[in-house]
Design a protein around this nucleic acid. Structure first.
Length: 411
DNA sequence: TCTGGGGTCCTAGGACCC
DNA sequence: TCTGGGGTCCTAGGACCC
């Protein structure tokens, strides 16, 4: 197999860096980017804030406890999307093989660009310089023979790092590397491996495969490979990316609610968000999942139902979700509601046979077009209009991709 | 003012069919 | 009277990623 050269590029404290670049008054100061309104958490904090102990996921009050002078900035998704898209354009100047992993991380397979640029470090320095010049933000870059190691490498020096794991240094680098540094080993997996006296990648790579398979099933083999730094997964360009498996939307309410009318209104709103996104990407699905988190935060449940037909109309999604809701007795006021549509298939463009269905389709398309142009929920079903806006925060999820199906609704 | 939101993949058990 | 095993589809839940 051909030796590959993969770059992993990770924008440092992305949302916070974009804000600091846009507003000189924020530079050099501890800032935290949070979701719009409602009950929100810190999505990103600047390095100045991190130094004081502010972490992603903290509530605002918690962040301020660590750092009283913390400046709270409400996130601006449009800015981040724009920057991310432009950054990926810079990457594509170096190789067409770019895979956007999230809004602030991409992999580049530069194997076939090396002859043009000389070597991978040149590419990395070029990218760093262009991004610094154009956006005034820094990135950490990892260079390695595969995606797993490139990602590991980009994490080793932050911010503004450049780390190379050459093929001949893989074993030495991994020998003492804690297993939890590997992408794919989370808290639970770490605990399980620790119980087997496995703490480092070196130990993981030497572990008997049968032992790992007994404990972890099919993942056991993969784990051993990860410990040895083996990863054959390709850098998948956007155009050839596999189809999405589900489209969902969930939101924490501004306050806990138990009024059935309010709950239904919110459900309809979520249905519209899921439906419009599914329609925009021409998918429909037949499994509806409803998720409810109660006021105490800890108790929650999810129920799903599979229909005979594939649907993507908001009112159909709403009816299915409501059907699920009606099978349960709510035990507490509701904190969060979520709906997702799965079991998806690509919807061929086809006009319905019957006049009333055609009318409905045209009406939906007109509504989607207006909402695309003037913003989400400018036009919607009548029952949504009265009453106050209940949509939760507008935090952009890191699963967002620069362009394509995972694009999330923004204002 | 305690604790977000978007996904993917895997497993286990039950129903049902052949 | 007692009995198989493979395959598929479904629901529920957990772990992981950003």
């Amino acid at each position: 197999m051909e030796t590959r050269t993969i770059l992993h590029i990770d924008a440092n404290a992305f949302f916070a860096s974009v804000e600091q670049a846009a507003n000189p008054e924020l530079r050099g100061k501890p800032i935290a980017v949070v979701g719009g309104h409602g009950r929100t958490v810190i999505t990103t904090s600047s390095y100045e804030a991190r130094a004081k102990g502010v972490k992603t996921g903290m509530a605002i009050w918690e962040g301020k406890r660590h750092c009283p002078e913390l400046i709270i900035v409400v996130g601006d998704n449009k800015k981040y999307q724009h920057t991310s898209t432009k950054m990926n354009e810079i990457f594509r100047d170096c190789t067409p093989e770019v895979e956007a992993f999230s809004i602030d991380e991409s992999w580049l397979d530069v194997t076939h660009s090396l002859s043009i640029f000389g070597n991978a470090e040149n590419i990395a320095y070029l990218i760093k310089a262009r991004i610094k010049y154009q956006f005034d933000i820094t990135v950490s870059i990892g260079i390695a023979p595969n995606k797993l190691l490139a990602k590991l490498a980009s994490d080793m020096h932050k911010p503004d790092g450049l780390t190379v794991i050459a093929p001949e240094n893989v074993a030495r680098t991994l020998e003492l590397m804690p297993i939890q540094e590997l992408c794919g080993v989370g808290k639970k997996m770490q605990r399980h491996l620790n119980m087997l006296s496995i703490y480092t990648c070196g130990e993981l790579g030497r572990c008997d495969e049968a032992r790992l398979t007994r404990k972890f099933g099919i993942i056991g083999k993969r784990l051993k490979q990860m410990g040895r730094g083996i990863d054959h997964s390709p850098v998948v360009q956007f155009a050839e990316e596999v189809d999405v498996k589900s489209v969902g939307h969930s939101s924490t309410l501004e306050r806990d609610i138990s009024d059935p009318v309010e709950i239904r209104r919110f459900l309809l709103q979520l249905s519209e968000m899921v439906g419009s996104r599914a329609r925009r990407y021409s998918v429909s699905g037949k499994t509806i999942h409803l998720y409810v988190r109660y006021a105490d935060f800890f108790s929650s449940w999810g129920k799903q139902t599979t229909l005979k037909n594939y649907i993507n109309q908001s009112d159909e999604i709403y009816r299915a979700a409501l059907g699920i809701l009606e099978t349960v007795e709510l035990e507490q006021p509701v904190r969060l509601l979520g709906i997702s549509l799965s079991n998806l298939k690509h919807q061929a463009e086809q006009l319905p046979l019957f006049e009333d269905e055609r009318k409905k389709l045209f009406a939906t398309q007109a509504m989607d077009t207006l909402n695309d142009r003037f913003g989400r929920m400018s036009v919607t079903y009548g029952t949504l209009l009265p009453g106050k806006e209940t949509a939760g925060s507008h935090v952009i999820p890191p699963s967002w991709r620069p362009d394509g199906i995972k694009n999330v609704d923004v204002e």
